[in-house]
Amino acid sequence: MTLFLLSVMVFLGGQVLPGNVGRAILGPFADQRAVDALNHTLGVDRPLLTQYWSWISNFVQGDMGTSYIFRSPVAPFVIDALGNSMKLAAVAFVLVVPIGILGGVIAALNLNRPLDRIISLGGLSVTVLPEFVTGIILILIFGVWLRWLPISAAWPKDAGFFTQLYYLILPALPLFLVLFGYIARMARSGMIEALDSDYTRTAVLKGLPWRTVIWRHVLRNALLPTITVIATQTGYLIGGLVVIETLFRYQGIGSLIFTAARGKDFPMLESGILTIGIVYAVATLIADFLYSALNPRIRLGSDQ
């Protein structure tokens, strides 16, 4: 449903509202015949429904159309950019998920003590800051003053895994900060609720060691809402990618969309956004599976 709505919106936004595409590309002084000819080659003079259908059916078959600017198929650009973005997102996620959960768990186990206050308040403060603001401040500290990390994410050609990783740490940090607060807060409130529950009390009264209680009874239940939050955060993460990739001049899907929007390269823009929509839908699906796999109350099939 979201995907369908997104595709219609993208289509309308990209192809219908700007009016005359040929005119938009060639500029206001171009010959009318040239404009008509270009419109015909691009196929934007056909009825709307036909255009939508041919666009969406081609997209499903992997043909994303031809870039207006580069005059070559869009698909390779999008796939390359998506790969780059995935690397960046992966670094951010690998950092933030364990650390965020750990932060929340530590805060909950130290409820209302100074450590909890520091984690909660710190998490809240960094979460509400726009990515480019934390990005700028981090660049200044680690890139300009301390000179520990490169300020641009464009690594040299043929860079190995660790070199790429080294270049990706600074861009991943703002994403880390934005997500950290959310994840830690969810993990914290989930933990508090689970620690307070009857089954935890039962487990403690049964005489189970504290470690077993935490691992087997509390954590499993406490982390369920956190998983849902992590999935919904992929949406924000993608929004953040647009900003971060622009700030660090990184060739990812976010900066691809941004450049396409600037240059009115509609096939590129539409394919980029729709690809993001698909990634988001897949992430939500994976979260659903994880949720049912971890929830002791939901069992898919019979495993006992």
Binding site: L12, L17, I257, I276
Partner: peptide, 17 residues
Amino acid sequence: AFMAIPVVIVALLAIVA
């Protein structure tokens, strides 16, 4: 469905259009 789309993306589209 709307809530799933990041604001930045909506904004990009709207501003292009």
